[in-house]
Amino acid sequence: MNQFLQVSSLSRAYRSGEVETQALDAISLEVAAGEFVALMGPSGCGKSTLLNILGFLDAPDAGSYRLRDEEVATLSDARLTRLRRAYVGFVFQSFNLIEELNVAENVEVALLYRSVDARRRRVDEVLEQVGLAHRARHRPRQLSGGQQQRVAIARALAPEPDLILADEPTGNLDSANGAAVMDLLKDAAARGTTVIMVTHSALHAAAADRTIRMLDGRIVGETRL
C-alpha cells in the first residue's frame, strides 16, 4: 500500500497560565492511501488534537508530519490553508453547518475556495449520493440530526479530497443514523479516500481497516482487521 501520511515524534502542548497540558506526547503514526483508520480513547487523550494537526487546523510544537513525502509540520499559515484546500475534508460531531445557508449552499462552501468547475452539478451529485437531493433548499434547522450529519459528509465529499477527517461523526446520532453515516464513510474509503475517524463506538471502529487506541497523548495500542 502507498504511504499517504507519516507522523513521527509529534508533540503538542496547551498552556493556560502556569498550567501546561501535554495533548500529544511524541506520537508516531503512518497511514496508507485509501486506508480507513479509527482513533479511539477516553476524552482528553489527544484524538481531536491529532485530527486537527493532520487536517492543518493546528500546528505541532515538535515532530515531523509528512504528507505524500512532503514535510508539512512547519509550514506557514497560508501554506497550511492551501494544503487544507487541496487535500482535506472535515466531518464534525456537532455538524458545524452554517445556519444562514441552505443545504446546497452549505455543501457549496467546500467548493468556493477551490477551483472547481460546474459546482452546482457537483453539489447535486453529492447530495444525491447522501440521499438528500430533495432537501437541497432546506435550512439546517429544518433537518434531523442524522440528515444534518449527512449534509456535513456531503460537504466533506464535494471537493473529492484525498483525506477525510471525521471527529466523532456519529457522536450525536442514534444508531440508525449512525449506521447510515458510517456507510457513507466506508463508501468514501472504498473509492480510495483516506479516512481517519475519531470515535468512542467500538461498533463503528470495527468498520475501519485499523483502530488506533490513545491514552494521555500517546498511542497505546493498535488493532488491524
Binding site: 487546523l57 490553508t81 487544507r84 458545524n96 467546500a110 477551490r114
Partner: peptide
C-alpha cells in the same frame, strides 16, 4: 465564529 471555522476548515484563507 462557527461559520468562520467551517469556512477555514474548507479551505478559506485569512484573505477570504
Amino acid at each position: 465564529r462557527r461559520e468562520i471555522g467551517v469556512r477555514k476548515a474548507n479551505g478559506a484563507g485569512r484573505g477570504h
